[in-house]
Design a protein around this nucleic acid. Sequence first.
DNA 1: GAGTGGTCTAGACCACAGA
DNA 2: CTGTGGTCTAGACCACTCT
Lengths: 262, 262
Amino acid sequence: MHLSTNSYNSYIRILKAYELTDFHAQPGNGPLYEQVKHLIVERVVSGVWTPGDRLPSETALAREINVSQGTVRKAMDDLCHENLLVRHQGRGTFVSIHTAQRELYHFFHLAGADGIKRLPQRSDVVSNTRRRANRAEAERLQLPAAAEVIVIKRNRHLDGQPAIIETIVLPATRFVGFERETDIPNELYQRYEEIFGVTIHKVEESLCAVAATRAEAKALGIEPGAPLLEIDRTAETLEGMPVEWRLSRCDSRTHRYLNENV
Amino acid sequence: MHLSTNSYNSYIRILKAYELTDFHAQPGNGPLYEQVKHLIVERVVSGVWTPGDRLPSETALAREINVSQGTVRKAMDDLCHENLLVRHQGRGTFVSIHTAQRELYHFFHLAGADGIKRLPQRSDVVSNTRRRANRAEAERLQLPAAAEVIVIKRNRHLDGQPAIIETIVLPATRFVGFERETDIPNELYQRYEEIFGVTIHKVEESLCAVAATRAEAKALGIEPGAPLLEIDRTAETLEGMPVEWRLSRCDSRTHRYLNENV
DNA sequence: GAGTGGTCTAGACCACAGA
DNA sequence: CTGTGGTCTAGACCACTCT
């Protein structure tokens, strides 16, 4: 029932929600479902719900924060479209986890001549060190000037051939001890999530063509000066903090970068 | 009101819709809103509503096809997310048109070193001919073996410098007389829409790095063999028919290809 | 069978645009 | 002022999953 205006009612309801949930934010004048989205994201970010967890049912959450089930549904629907949640009819709503499938589908764009994507089967780690960030690294990861970073270099194989040379830069404070890791998996984002509680939510990539250096040519078994595809990627958490900078140089004779836009 | 089951009711309702609208399709057992989406797309494809047109209001369309306003809303919401429709509060819902903005935002991915996208200011048409398709072209555009195509070659400038060499292949049957066109604009998709009634809805791009040929090097003012970014694009209509094949080779020293994924 | 999300309806009020 | 989309509610039934 409406007491006076819809907005007023929303305000009251969301206040109750804060009391119940320790959730702190501006007393939001935006739509109710936006505030519900915010609340859900906050609980995921703060670790109340972690990847793989089942959320309360729509009706339960609606009752808890005193809004209608339809409003919770709209909030959850939006977050599903943003890939933060996944729904399973009859089972419930869950916080997304980085399966290899999901990683392949959303964040990996290299495909063979047949247009079918494939993940590297093999990655040889060349080095894994911890040192002070240079200026470019600090800027990319929004770190203070003298902060430490972990730098991993590896060669990845596609279809049995060395195809990608990759340099990965991580902030040392978030990935404590990763420089001592000996078993570095192909799918890093699952590891980030499981071990360090870092969920990669969005990646931005920019591409250009470069000429292979002598060392790169040797590693990839091609001629020095041959054209390579360079992929410069910044990966962000749910909160929008950049937590990985990855520079990949790919032999693009046999593999291509795919992108689709509607 | 529910007569027996929801599905039965839906079936009856959608039958009425067919009678009213000349809309023919399988008597759909899928969700009602999917059938409404289908109906809207059909009307756009068949030209009942064309880009820029205002659709009937949600309530009007709901009344016409005998479903609730909420169901029409869900259908329209989905189609907005798919970029087929745009909504303006207080004004109505419209079929999308290819503005330069939209084209820039959705289909153009080159940006300067600052990460800001820019459209070419200038495009010099090198040639514009009509001839039989070769095998690769026929395959890409799903044309019969001996079909005719229009082939346009042009050099495009970014930030005042020649930066892109482009070859565009179009099926001659859809773009009648385009080979005699002398004024070829930068934003082709708007022209396709206005003159030929062809709306580009989706593009698929695949990228690789290549070495510049002598001719390309000369056109771009770089060294032969220098690395170029090759963008191979297929553009599709709403119905999913490929109607443009575009091969661009870009000087990527000063410009990069951007991509963002959530 | 109980509980979950998926679909559909009906009706309310709000915010915005345009006559 | 009227009509549009935007938000919110309440309640119904369906389809699916698990026990």
